[in-house]
Amino acid sequence: METVDLSATLSTAKEWKEKLQAAGIDLSSCYQCGKCTAGCPMASAMDYSPRQTVRLLQLGMADTALRSRTIWLCASCETCATRCPRDVDVAKMMDILRIEADRAGVAAVPSVPIFHKTFLESVENHGRVYEMELMMKFNMRTRKLFNNADLGPKMMQKGKLHFLAPKVDDGGAVRKIFARVRERRDG
C-alpha cells in the first residue's frame, strides 16, 4: 500500500471542503462512524465504502475518489443520507463526484456515464425518454450490441416498449432548458 503524503493532499482537502460546503455538505461534520456504509446496499461491490469516500475527501485525496468505482456503483438510494447522525448528505456528495469525474474524463465504470449521456440526449431530443432509441444507442456506445437483447421483444410483446418516439407538445421548451444550462455551465 502506498504511503499517503499528507503535505501534498491537504491543500486539496481545503478546496473540497469549500466546494462541498457550497452544496450544503459539511465534510468536517463526518466523524467516520460508518453508518452510511453499514446500510449501503451496494457497499459490497464498491472499492471504497461510502465512509471511506468521505474520508478520501477529508484528507484531500480527491483524485482517488474521482477514479473510484464506488461513485458509479452508488444506486442513489439515499439510505446513507437518511440515517447519517451528522446530517452529511453522502448521496449528494456522490452526485458531485460523478459530475466532476465525468467532466474530467476519469470515470472508472464508463458505461454508467455513457448511459446518463444517452438518456439525457433522448430527453433533450424528444422531451421524454425514448426507450427504444436509448437502449439501442447505449448498446452501440458500450459495444455490447446484444446486452439485454432478450428483454426488448419481451417488453414489446407486453406493449411496454414502442417503436416510435414520444410526441411532446412543449414548444421546444426542453431543448431550450438544455441550451440555457449548457450556456451557464460553459460561459
Binding site: C33, G34, T37, Q52
Partner: peptide, 12 residues
Amino acid sequence: VYGEDSLLGRQV
C-alpha cells in the same frame, strides 16, 4: 444487524 467494521472497511 447491519454494521460496518470501519477499521477493516467492510460491511458486517
